[in-house]
Design a protein around this nucleic acid. Structure first.
Lengths: 216, 216
DNA sequence: ACATCTCCTTAACAGCGTTAAGTGGCGTCG
DNA sequence: CGACGCCACTTAACGCTGTTAAGGAGATGT
């Protein structure tokens, strides 16, 4: 009967476990007690590694970013269009990989400088394509915020594959907007094929960058 | 010594009071007990008017929308560019008018069909400018989600005029990103002049709509 | 007059993030 | 060897949260 002692925790193990649990219970179910239970520990133990829950969420967001960056093949020969597409498709994919991923991500701040290298590489590629640094920042920032807004909305309606938030299906919306024919018709377009709608928005942004900043 | 009886509550009074209180205490301080206290009532009384807190937040978001729509002059002679600019500037202004406005707004769903008329008018104007309905929906949706993403970020860094979130000023960011010159330089551009940055993003989107959908 | 409906109160519940204090095991030092 | 001290955690508790159950006062209807 050995008690089989656990190895001590560290920030990484906690964040990993919390991310796994996030997908099972969602953000509102992600309590410190639940995370601790998963780690075979009591809740206050987490305060040894994180000063409060937000610090843990920050670490989770940072880890989400690290995994996203690790999975992205950054071809230095990309055109700026391809790079912006890859960045934002990758970001959306990463956020969709976690329940409430967008809410966790945009409510948090990175804990380290892990994003430095990729940010630098992206800015370099954009500026070498003929954009000024300010233009590159605007382009990156605008697409980034669009993507965050998009996925936030997407996950609000559909927190995870399967399961829809109650009281917001197309039929009910159509009933409430009867009398507004264009609005009602628009509803059909609004709740299907998120992939293609996301792409369309990205294309709009990229067309705008090309037009306004005169980049090839 | 008259007890000076209160008039009975209704959903509107509750939502109005909650919105006023939101600006004083922020979303995390907006508890049912605090709202009830403001209304000279006990917390469970609110459950007579709303089935749960989310229903109250939904009503608040709807009221935010109503006030925004009421303050917007919708000139039928607008070009589609002007209209999209007005809509999204108005939305941003409305969200910035409340502490955590963007989080409340994008976490909620409208309770009625108040948005019907304006949505219909906007879609009509866009389609009469030569866009297909699908294009109009894409244009409106993309700008809308950009604006929500932008203000969410903006209010995350600066929840209200004054008061910044701790641990994220430009100096600390620059220190962490030393060694990444473009990224460090970009930081200066990232945290100042939100108004102008918002405008720039909007212009990118509008340029993209013009270019991709070939509208005048 | 009694019953009904409306709107609110009191009391309580489980669960939350968080803090304070204590405790067992380990490494180091006298 | 024994004592000290640090690490990583536990136990206990606090004030707070959203929410439910039960009841009660006051107007309204018959």
């Amino acid at each position: 009967m050995k008690p089989e002692k656990r190895a001590p925790l560290d920030r990484g193990r906690v964040a990993d476990t919390a991310l796994r649990l996030l997908n099972e219970v969602g953000l509102e179910g992600l309590t410190l007690r639940a995370i601790a239970r998963e780690l075979d520990v009591k809740a206050p133990a987490l305060y040894w590694h994180f000063k409060d829950k937000q610090a843990l969420l920050d670490e989770m967001a940072t880890e989400m970013y690290r995994r996203m960056a690790a999975g992205a093949a950054l071809d230095p020969a990309d055109t700026w269009r391809e790079r912006l597409l890859k960045i934002n498709r990758g970001l959306r994919g990463a956020l969709l990989g976690y329940r409430d991923g967008a809410r966790v991500f945009s409510g948090s701040r990175f804990t380290g400088a892990d994003h430095g290298p990729e940010l630098e590489a992206n800015l370099r590629l954009l500026t070498e394509s003929g954009l000024t640094l300010a233009q590159a920042v605007h382009a990156g920032r605008t697409t980034h915020l669009y993507t965050l807004g998009f996925v936030t909305e997407e996950q609000g309606v559909r927190p995870h594959p399967d399961e829809r938030r109650e009281g917001y299906d197309v039929a009910e919306r159509a009933r409430r907007l009867a009398g507004y024919p264009l609005a009602a018709e628009a509803g059909k377009l609004l709740f299907d094929d998120y992939d293609q709608q996301f792409e369309e928005g990205l294309e709009l942004l990229i067309a705008g960058i090309a037009a306004r900043y005169g980049a090839g």
